[in-house]
């Protein structure tokens, strides 16, 4: 009973906040609702017994990605009304394309058939006596290690790309050199002189 109640709370808040993401007038509110929906999605994962994924969702999406999102959105001075102005003329085209796609998808899923081997292929029972964090770890780092490492290379490329396309060396800026500062000794730069009074330096 409690689980059903929790499910309905999480699910309804999730859907409501997801709706608010796209309808809120203020972009910052949109992002905040997005965060709320992430949070509720994490709650649903917990109910499913996938606590590791739930926590990772909160740590990665709520704790890092959405913060940067919010960071950027807060600093942008955009009015969504202006952005939407031109968008209206594309609505008919979008509706037609989306509608056709939707009809197609409905017709596919209405006639959906599974291969007789599908259930056997997809069956991946949780190993006995292992919590799902460990089971996930085994999958990622043993069975799918190749794809995991390759995905790491994809992220490396993304990082290189971001740096290549945006980083600029600015010659006119004086940079702090910590090692040079630390290496400075009083003997190198200080000279102690005796000044006799009334004669100036």
């Amino acid at each position: 009973m409690f689980e059903a109640l929790a499910f309905y709370v999480f699910a309804s808040v999730l859907v409501a906040s997801a709706l608010m993401v796209i309808t809120a007038r203020n972009p910052v509110h949109s992002v905040l609702f997005l965060i709320l929906s992430f949070f509720n999605a994490a709650g649903l994962f917990v109910l499913l017994g996938a606590e590791f994924i739930a926590m990772i969702l909160v740590i990665v999406y709520v704790g890092a990605v959405a913060v940067l999102f919010l960071f950027v959105v807060m600093m942008l001075d955009i009015s969504f009304a202006d952005l939407r102005k031109g968008a209206m003329q594309y609505v008919p085209v979008g509706l037609i394309a989306g509608g056709i796609l939707l009809l197609e998808l409905i017709s596919i899923f209405a006639a959906w058939q599974f291969s007789p081997e599908a259930s056997k292929n997809a069956a991946a029972p949780t190993p006995e006596g292992v919590e799902n964090t460990v089971a996930l770890g085994r999958l990622i780092y043993t069975d799918y290690v190749f794809a995991f490492q390759a995905a790491g290379m994809v992220l490396l490329v993304a990082m290189i790309g971001a740096i290549v396309l945006t980083h600029r060396q600015r010659p006119d800026v004086r940079r702090q050199k910590v090692s040079a500062q630390n290496a400075r000794r009083p003997e190198d730069v200080l000279e102690i002189q005796k000044i006799s009074s009334n004669s100036g330096v």
Partner: peptide, 21 residues
């Protein structure tokens, strides 16, 4: 819970929202 440390980390990373909001 068996992901306690992740929970702790997740919640502490949420703290930033109070400040930024």
């Amino acid at each position: 819970i068996n992901v306690g440390i992740l929970y702790l980390f997740a919640i502490s990373s949420m703290g930033v929202y109070g400040v930024i909001m």
